[in-house]
Write a protein that binds this DNA or RNA. Structure first.
Lengths: 341, 341
DNA sequence: ATAGTTTGTGTAAAGGTTTACATCATTGCA
DNA sequence: TGCAATGATGTAAACCTTTACACAAACTAT
């Protein structure tokens, strides 16, 4: 039953009394084989406990059943749930996923390129807006690939993201509905499409309310907690103060809250704050953070589905999929305080 | 230069004017080949851009260069940093890692077992205290394996963890040094060795200070935020109150803090709180949480190093590696309030 | 000079699978 | 009945490596 060495297709063939070709067909093209034969083969497989040797199969087929997922930072709170979506979808189609993190290091990226070249991955999921392969990026021969969150700079790679404009619009509309008129935007000046889109949502929302953007209360940070804290400091040195802070992401919002609390202000009594992403800690802040939720698992699922489509068809049906983000109302937003309204 | 199909060892051999065997030797046993030949081969490799086809190599060798990492939950805040340690160590030895999450579902576990059986992974890293393969666990033929955090139930599998007793001791000693005498312990009754060891550290610390465990202020939860909150509720219904809460992990500590704040108490003014793990959000709590830091990256590194040793030697030098956790002093601990001392 | 050893390289088999092609039996149709 | 078409199965090559074994040349020690 359970020998020391795994059963091969040959063992199965011998027991089922057919050729190895028939066994292979019974497994992969069952309609091509007679019912009675298929039965015999299936029994033999059960008896031997045979599982296809993936190395041999990949070698013969010239492609593996692994998908490489490259992210700059595995620890990113946005990452793990997307990974779950990716993994579920992949596995249910017979693929496994393999993760790599580059930490924005081109050398690391290059190792993954070598990995791809040695045929070990059939496809590629990229969490970064650029190809992380350093100077070889231009000549890289890539397998079918899909981007997550952002279009990949080099072009031609479809991607799955979130409708940032619509999401930002939900945040700004909430603040306006609560009565805020002077709403600061704490942005991210790094060249990521997601961030500039959120800014567009902010502008559009103000515009729709007939308010217009006041650049004195727009601050460009870098998406970190520290940058949120810094933005508060800088804004308090200017001549006009907002009643609310709309932040480009949750990290920034956390920083803003820290900065405001350090100055002795109450949230949302003195200032309202919104984030974007709904990272796990958002709910544990005090007050808990009102934010825009990224449908992370769904993003992962769609990205992998798109990649699998690419793998079988060669051509993607869609070149861009934007999912709808949802407003999560918690306790960091209220009516503006009468004093500064 | 960059053809449509990747260069094979044969292309290299032709250009270097040697046999494929020599090319293989030049790569993997360079000392077995003449200097001049090695030079020719290296040049040919550079010209062709050859990279070894990992599938063919694995097939021939009968083992892959992939390590499977199985965790119940990828989203666990403890997970990602350990993963980084694992990944760095693996990659620097020519191995890649592959992650899978079981969500404690035996069916999922079984798929990974099939994966292992099809020779796709040379080794296994287990984040769970039991083999996640359901009823086939007993007969499973496993590759070299290493556990992380906990010994694997089935036995014979070395593991890398943290010295929980020493860690817990650091927490209890700090509280005692601050003057606390009545220190509650909020534990985790699930059968995880780590948790019972932390309890042992608590008992030992009290004992060393000549205090002794007061079971009226020991609560067994399940390690979740909610269980921490609940513990507070229950403790306030008993006839004796502690001045400090030592929690089995950070999640529990967060729950305790939420519970205490809900009752209007100040931390650390009215009650001190300690956690264990130092999850990323610990520093963002208000007050920030004093806790015991798991050396996560180091754990990953050691676990992978141990596995690689297993893969080459067959026998592990150590069967258990416990790393030293460090106290991280933040703002959730102070001298007990005079009122309840 | 000879026998034995070392060094460097080549030949060919093996690893497990998929699939083009060949073969044979069966069926359908004139 | 004969012939073509269809269906089911088998044979063997190919995918790309690694390595045991064989062989030749160049040393070493007598």
């Amino acid at each position: 039953m359970s020998n020391s060495t795994p059963a091969t297709i040959e063992d199965v063939a011998r027991i089922a009394n057919v050729s190895i070709a028939t066994v292979s067909r019974a497994i992969h093209m069952p309609e091509k084989v007679a019912n009675s034969t298929r039965l015999k083969v299936n029994q033999a497989i059960a008896v031997t406990g045979y599982t296809t040797n993936a190395m041999a199969r990949s070698l013969r087929l010239g492609r593996s059943n692994m998908i490489l997922v490259v992210a700059p930072d595995i620890g990113d709170p946005n990452f793990s749930n997307i990974l779950i979506g990716l993994e579920n979808e992949a596995r249910s189609h017979g693929y496994g996923i393999l993760i790599g993190h580059t930490q924005n290091d081109a050398q690391r990226g290059l190792e993954y390129l070598k990995f791809l070249n040695s045929n070990q991955a059939a496809g590629l999921i990229l969490f970064t807006g650029i190809l992380p392969f350093g100077h070889q990026t231009m000549t890289a021969r890539l397998p079918p690939s899909v981007g997550v969150f952002e279009p990949v700079f080099n072009g031609g790679i479809p991607y799955v993201g979130v409708d940032d404009i619509a999401g930002a619009r939900k945040a700004i509309d909430l603040l306006i509905a609560e009565g805020h008129r002077k709403i600061a935007f704490i942005g991210d000046s790094r060249t990521r499409l997601a961030y500039s889109r959120r800014r567009m949502g902010y502008d559009a929302g103000l515009d729709a309310a007939g308010i217009g953007t006041d650049l004195r209360i727009v601050f460009e940070g870098d998406g970190t907690i520290e940058s949120g804290r810094l933005a508060v400091e800088q804004l308090f040195m200017r001549d006009t103060l907002p009643t609310a802070f709309m932040c480009v992401n949750d990290q920034t919002a956390i920083g803003v809250m820290i900065g405001l609390k350090a100055r002795g202000y109450d949230i949302p009594g003195d200032f309202s704050v919104t984030g974007f992403d709904d990272v796990p800690q958002a709910v544990f802040m005090s007050p808990s953070l009102t934010t825009i939720r990224q449908p992370r698992t769904a993003i992962g699922k769609h990205a992998m589905a798109l990649l699998l489509e690419l793998l079988s068809d060669g051509q993607p049906a869609e070149t861009e999929i934007l999912l709808r983000p949802d407003l999560v109302v918690r306790n960091s937003v209220s009516t503006p305080s009468r004093a500064r309204r």
